[in-house]
């Protein structure tokens, strides 16, 4: 780290150019709550840090085509202060609110949470459940990528060298939609999810589920979108029988590892418990919306 350089980019093009010109290890810096911790613990030794926080596109929150768009580097606390966004996507906010502590959320961004590619990242399952799209800018221009395709494994993304996630778009919400995210941690905060479950539901006027997405965190190498679990809810009134079927599908989809943070058995079991609880919260929100 003797020759570490820090550059703050003003535009996306500037950031891309800085990254392209560096032959050594480059890290994009948003809130830095992962990057700096990893540097201090010698996990990474970057030659160049490119700070993207001065680039306007990565810092704005706005309504767009009936849905929402927010910058990849918007800190969690700014999202929490945005009443309209919070009202539209309470489940995404369940995830954002769980990241670290007040101090961490003052910096931590959803883009950083996603690109750090931890299977336990808290904002990622509800973003996938929300069908969020990422706008990616790089040497070859812009592309739109579903959020579930960004992280591919622990610490690994599908981004090409020089590519930056600029912002996320969330689709317009039909009436009677609700989402929720729950995680299990031994501590009440400042902890890492042993299991996380996000559920996003839409009901028709009769209360029948017409669309659902169920996403699991921390039970596989990356967040899992479990179609079978969603199918167990779609077409039902989300009654106890449907929830029971969904729980079975969730547990069947879990592919966790045994490690210091939890056993396979515990994670699988608790994934089902949280799936039930998150579904009930999403359902209540959908009925109220």
């Amino acid at each position: 780290m003797d020759n570490l350089r820090y550059e703050a980019a003003d535009t996306l093009a500037h950031a891309a150019q800085l990254i392209a010109a560096e032959s050594g290890d480059v890290r994009v810096l948003a809130g830095g709550t992962d990057v700096l911790v990893q540097m201090h613990s010698d996990m990474i030794e970057p030659d160049l840090i490119v700070d993207i926080k001065n680039i306007p596109e990565v810092r704005t929150i706005q309504q767009e085509d009936g849905g929402w768009r927010f910058g990849a580097a918007v800190p969690g606390l700014e999202l929490m202060d945005h009443a309209d966004f919070c009202a539209a996507w309470p489940g995404v906010m369940d995830g954002v609110k769980l990241i670290g502590s007040v101090q961490i959320r003052g910096r931590a961004s959803v883009g950083g949470n996603l690109c750090n590619a931890s299977p336990a990242a808290d904002s990622v399952p509800p973003m996938i459940a929300a069908s969020a799209m990422a706008t990616v800018f790089g040497p070859n221009g812009s592309r739109e990528v579903p959020v579930q395709d960004i992280a591919v494994g622990p610490g690994k993304t599908s981004l090409e060298k020089g590519e930056i996630v600029v912002s996320f778009s969330l689709p317009p919400r039909p009436a009677h939609s609700g989402d929720a995210y729950l995680r299990f941690t031994p501590r009440t905060e400042m902890d890492i999810a042993v299991v996380g479950v996000a559920v996003n539901l839409t009901l028709d006027d009769a209360g029948i589920c017409t669309a659902a997405r169920v996403v699991l965190g921390a039970v596989a190498a990356r967040a899992l979108l479990v179609q079978e679990a969603a199918d167990a809810l779609i077409g039902t009134s989300v009654d106890d029988a449907a929830i029971e079927n969904m729980i079975q599908e969730v547990r069947a989809a879990c592919r966790p590892i045994d490690d210091k943070r939890g056993t396979i058995e515990f994670r699988t079991k608790v994934a089902g418990v949280l799936a039930e609880r998150a579904t009930k919260i999403a359902l209540e929100r959908a009925r109220g919306a």
Partner: peptide, 9 residues
């Protein structure tokens, strides 16, 4: 992170 002393909450 993984040696879990309690936090205030």
């Amino acid at each position: 992170l993984d040696y879990r002393v309690p936090v205030a909450s």
